[in-house]
Amino acid sequence: PKCKGCFKAIVAGDQNVEYKGTVWHKDCFTCSNCKQVIGTGSFFPKGEDFYCVTCHETKF
């Protein structure tokens, strides 16, 4: 599969995040607002966007 963030291949051994059939490298899975890496931490999906806890609390 290819990462939705950088469009490069995800190979065995890469740390990745999967959500609803889409996959990202862990470092490519970032907050849509502040761009900080969410990685495998908590996040809030809103449509096609993903927000870290801090930005979600501030924005919504």
Rank of each mutant, 00 (worst) to 15 (best):
Q36M: 04
D14I: 12
D14P: 12
Y51D: 15
G39S: 11
K59R: 12
K20H: 08
G47K: 09
T40M: 08
K20I: 05
V23L: 13
F29A: 04
G47Y: 09
T40Y: 03
T40K: 12
W24G: 01
T58V: 05
C34E: 04
V37T: 08
S42M: 03
D14N: 05
F44D: 10
G21N: 01
Q36S: 12
Y51S: 06
D27L: 08
F50V: 07
K46V: 12
K4D: 07
V53R: 09
H25R: 00
K59T: 11
K4H: 15
P1T: 15
N16E: 14
K46Y: 14
C34K: 00
S32I: 05
V17L: 06
T54V: 10
A12V: 11
H25K: 02
G39A: 08
T30G: 12
C34S: 00
K35M: 08
Q15L: 09
H25Y: 01
V37K: 14
I38F: 06
V53A: 08
C6R: 00
K35T: 09
F29N: 07
A9Y: 01
F7S: 12
K35C: 11
F60S: 12
T22M: 09
I10Q: 08
F43D: 03
E48G: 10
G5T: 03
G13M: 12
G13H: 04
D49T: 11
S32W: 12
K26W: 04
V37Y: 10
H25P: 02
E18W: 10
Y51F: 10
F50D: 03
K46H: 07
F29D: 01
T22H: 09
E18S: 09
S42T: 14
K26N: 02
C55S: 01
K35H: 08
I38E: 02
N16A: 02
C34D: 00
I10A: 10
F7Q: 15
F44S: 13
T54I: 08
G39P: 06
F50I: 04
D27Q: 04
G13T: 14
F29M: 11
G13A: 14
T22P: 03
K8D: 06
K35E: 04
N16C: 02
C6Q: 01
G39D: 10
G5M: 05
D27P: 13
E57M: 07
K26F: 03
S32E: 04
Q36D: 14
V23G: 11
K20Q: 10
G13W: 08
V17W: 08
V37P: 11
G47W: 04
G47Q: 10
C34A: 00
D49R: 10
K26G: 13
A9K: 04
C6K: 00
D49S: 11
Q36T: 15
P45N: 02
